[in-house]
Simulated assay, not measured.
Amino acid sequence: MARGRGAVINVASLLAFAGDLPPDPLPRRAVYAGSKGYAVTFTRTLAAELTGTPVRAQVVCPGLTATEFHLDAGDTPVSGDRRVHEEGGMPAADVVTASLAALETGEVVCVPGLTDAGAVTRLAEAELDLRAGSERRLAPRYAHGE
Results as ranks from 00 to 15, higher is better:
27 P>H: 07
49 E>L: 12
43 T>Y: 00
34 G>N: 08
25 P>D: 12
46 L>C: 06
60 V>W: 01
59 V>A: 08
35 S>I: 04
53 T>C: 06
28 R>N: 15
68 E>Y: 08
70 H>A: 12
56 R>F: 12
32 Y>R: 13
20 D>E: 13
74 G>L: 12
68 E>M: 03
49 E>P: 02
71 L>G: 01
47 A>K: 01
39 A>G: 07
41 T>Y: 05
47 A>T: 11
34 G>C: 06
39 A>L: 04
35 S>H: 10
59 V>G: 02
69 F>C: 04
52 G>N: 08
52 G>R: 03
71 L>W: 05
71 L>D: 05
23 P>A: 15
45 T>V: 12
32 Y>L: 04
67 T>N: 05
37 G>P: 03
22 P>D: 13
57 A>Y: 00
37 G>R: 13
24 D>L: 11
47 A>Y: 03
21 L>K: 11
47 A>P: 04
40 V>K: 00
48 A>S: 12
58 Q>D: 08
69 F>K: 01
44 R>D: 05
20 D>C: 06
65 T>A: 14
23 P>F: 12
36 K>T: 08
29 R>H: 13
68 E>L: 06
40 V>I: 10
49 E>W: 11
43 T>Q: 05
42 F>H: 10
41 T>K: 00
50 L>Y: 04
34 G>H: 10
35 S>K: 09
59 V>C: 02
53 T>Y: 04
67 T>G: 04
55 V>C: 07
40 V>S: 02
45 T>F: 06
47 A>I: 01
46 L>I: 06
65 T>D: 09
45 T>R: 11
74 G>S: 13
40 V>E: 01
62 P>R: 02
70 H>M: 11
73 A>W: 10
60 V>I: 10
47 A>L: 05
50 L>Q: 01
65 T>Q: 09
74 G>Q: 09
27 P>R: 08
66 A>N: 05
42 F>G: 06
69 F>Q: 03
31 V>Q: 14
27 P>W: 12
60 V>Y: 07
37 G>W: 08
26 L>F: 15
59 V>Q: 07
23 P>C: 12
25 P>Q: 11
25 P>R: 10
58 Q>G: 00
49 E>R: 14
62 P>Q: 08
58 Q>W: 03
72 D>V: 03
59 V>L: 10
63 G>H: 00
65 T>E: 06
27 P>Y: 09
74 G>N: 10
43 T>N: 07
42 F>W: 09
43 T>R: 01
59 V>D: 01
25 P>T: 11
47 A>V: 04
30 A>E: 15
48 A>N: 13
55 V>P: 11
73 A>M: 13
49 E>V: 11
42 F>S: 07
53 T>N: 03
70 H>F: 15
56 R>K: 15
47 A>R: 01
36 K>W: 04
30 A>C: 13
60 V>L: 03
35 S>Q: 11
22 P>H: 07
51 T>Y: 02
33 A>K: 07
54 P>N: 01
43 T>W: 00
55 V>W: 12
28 R>C: 15
66 A>R: 12
36 K>I: 02
41 T>C: 08
58 Q>N: 05
63 G>N: 03
60 V>A: 09
54 P>Q: 05
53 T>K: 03
21 L>E: 09
20 D>N: 13
64 L>K: 02
52 G>Q: 05
63 G>K: 05
31 V>D: 09
35 S>A: 15
64 L>W: 00
30 A>K: 04
